[in-house]
């Protein structure tokens, strides 16, 4: 007897829980050959609003953790990705049409990227912070502080390595994030959300919305309680990127601009993705007594 297909409908990841979209809509996800794979929730602006509330709520606790602790938590995500290797490999093969070997390699890259960023948690301050020389009996220290709630438009092509390369640098410094995943290739993001839910990442630190960036991103760009937006995921869509930059100007959001084409994610990412979403805090401190 043949089994009945289990046609899965995935949900969003907001505040550590998996709610359905407020809109009630979902959309079909196909593999690269056009075959049906699963349904994904189609996030609406209200889901984005809820995600921002969750991210804001989580910000105090996450940014207050020690850098060492945040590093441990990011390492833990990498460990869990190892555990879910077959599932992620399959998701990569379906969404990106990779061979088994190439999907394994892409997953290795994603895990390595996460470990690489985890290592930066307690090192970035030493590199971009400073003890400034001043002409007086003071210490003058500049240190990077997280910007706050960051909206990230995940890359459309690279559905796992690109996703990890977009999320990890934002959260490692203590920001919380609302991510809009790749529209055509949301399933690795959904699996990543399931990994986060079972890891030590506090609920609300990473919120993942599946759906259309063109529909949701304007609400995030104009949202007065979002402190920064990463537009790298809509590389090439100049018109949308420009309109989002304009909308982001109202509350002086930090904007990481969209490049002309999707970057090569396997290249050394450098520090830019981390330094884009930190603020330099400088304190004067009396010296000696």
């Amino acid at each position: 007897m043949s089994r009945i297909d289990v046609r899965k409908t995935y949900k969003l990841f907001i505040g550590g829980a998996f709610p359905r979209s407020e809109s009630g809509y979902s959309y079909q996800v196909h593999d690269t050959k056009g075959a049906f794979v699963a349904n994904a929730a189609l996030a609406s602006r209200k889901d984005a609003r809820d995600a921002v509330v969750a991210a804001r709520k989580a910000f105090g606790g996450w940014s207050g953790k020690t850098a060492y602790n945040r590093a441990q938590i990011l390492y833990r995500i990498a460990e869990l990705m190892e555990d879910r290797r077959p599932q992620l490999v399959q998701a990569l093969r379906q969404s990106e049409g990779l061979t088994a070997a190439r999907a394994e390699r892409a997953l290795d890259d994603a895990i390595d990227r996460l470990v690489w960023y985890a290592g930066w948690a307690d090192k970035l301050t030493q590199v971009i912070g400073n003890a400034n020389p001043v002409a007086g009996p003071y210490f003058n220290l500049s240190t990077p502080e997280p910007t706050g709630v960051v909206a990230v438009l995940a890359p459309q092509e690279s559905s796992l390595l690109g996703l990890v390369s977009a999320i990890a640098p934002v959260i490692v410094t203590g920001n919380t994030v609302v991510v809009i995943s790749s529209f055509e290739r949301p399933l690795p993001a959904v699996t990543f959300a399931e990994i986060l839910a079972t890891s030590d990442v506090p609920g609300g630190v990473v919120n993942i919305l599946t759906g259309s960036a063109a529909t949701i991103a304007p609400w995030l760009a104009s949202h007065m309680d979002v402190n920064a937006i990463d537009l790298v995921g809509i590389a090439g869509d100049t018109e949308l990127a420009t309109s989002l930059e304009v909308a982001a100007a109202d509350n002086l959001k930090r904007v990481r601009r969209a490049p002309a084409a999707e970057p090569d994610w396997s290249a050394d990412p450098g520090l830019d993705a981390m330094t884009a979403f930190v603020e330099t805090k400088t304190v004067w401190h009396p010296m000696g007594v």
Binding site: R49, V52, W219, S222, H223, M224, D225, N251
Partner: peptide, 9 residues
Amino acid sequence: TGRYSGPDY
């Protein structure tokens, strides 16, 4: 205003 506001304001 047509855009979401935040507690900062």
